[in-house]
Write a protein that binds this DNA or RNA. Structure first.
Length: 200
DNA sequence: CATGGGATTGACT
DNA sequence: GTCAATCCCATGC
């Protein structure tokens, strides 16, 4: 399995967010298929990069293909992939995975009786399941401890569902959330009756 | 220097 | 459905 190269991330963040659905995140013996992403860009107020270059956003404004890991609500670690050329301040939030490898290890970290679809169905859940902590902020996704891999060729192409991002209060209207349509491993079920889907 | 607000989750009514 | 936990850091005085 080959890791995505740096050029993959050195593109518009929306394109990367779309293309990451179906890719694999691997850390140690645990891995999962990405089924949900969100794009964030310095030009819109929901992004941490909106405030400009500060100690907090150094990683976001750095080179693409690097992990941006930050603490959310004082409790959870959230994993992002830094995108676009250095200086642009853009990243894709990984919001949910379909567990692939090391599922027993995930249950040790998340709870022995946890259902499969609850192991990684949220941005804070998947970092706990894969043991991704704040110390991995700034590490390479190309040749660092966390690897993002291209989809296996045998895997059927996923249909993409597109909609507004979750859990934000600013720029709520932007349809910058991308899900594998019909997946039972996403963080929140898709609004019923939503037809705004397109091919991957 | 004090304050307020989260890109969430899990427990509880 | 509601709500607390918990802490870094950006902002404003």
């Amino acid at each position: 399995m080959t890791a995505l190269d740096r050029a993959f991330y050195d593109r518009p963040v929306l394109a990367v967010a779309r293309d990451l659905v179906g890719c694999v995140v691997r850390h140690g013996a645990t891995a999962g298929v990405i089924v949900e992403t969100e794009a964030y860009h310095h030009s819109e107020p929901a992004s941490h990069a909106y405030v400009g270059l500060t100690p907090r956003t150094v990683t976001l404004y750095g080179p693409p293909g690097v992990a941006y890991v930050y603490r959310s609500y004082g409790i959870h670690a959230l994993l992002n992939a830094v995108c676009e050329p250095e200086g642009e301040g853009a990243a894709v939030l990984i919001r949910a995975l379909e567990p692939l490898d090391g599922i027993a290890q995930m249950r040790v970290r998340r709870g022995a009786h946890m259902r499969l679809e609850d192991l990684c169905s949220g941005p804070g859940k998947l970092t706990q399941a894969l043991a991704v902590g704040l110390e991995l902020n700034g590490t390479s996704l190309v040749d660092g401890p966390i690897r993002f891999e291209a989809p296996v060729a045998a895997r059927p192409e996923v249909e993409l569902a597109v909609g507004p991002r979750i859990g934000i209060t600013k720029a709520v209207e932007l349809p910058w959330r991308f899900c594998a349509a019909g997946s039972r491993h996403v963080s929140r079920p898709w609004p019923p009756g939503h037809r705004d889907t397109l091919a991957a």
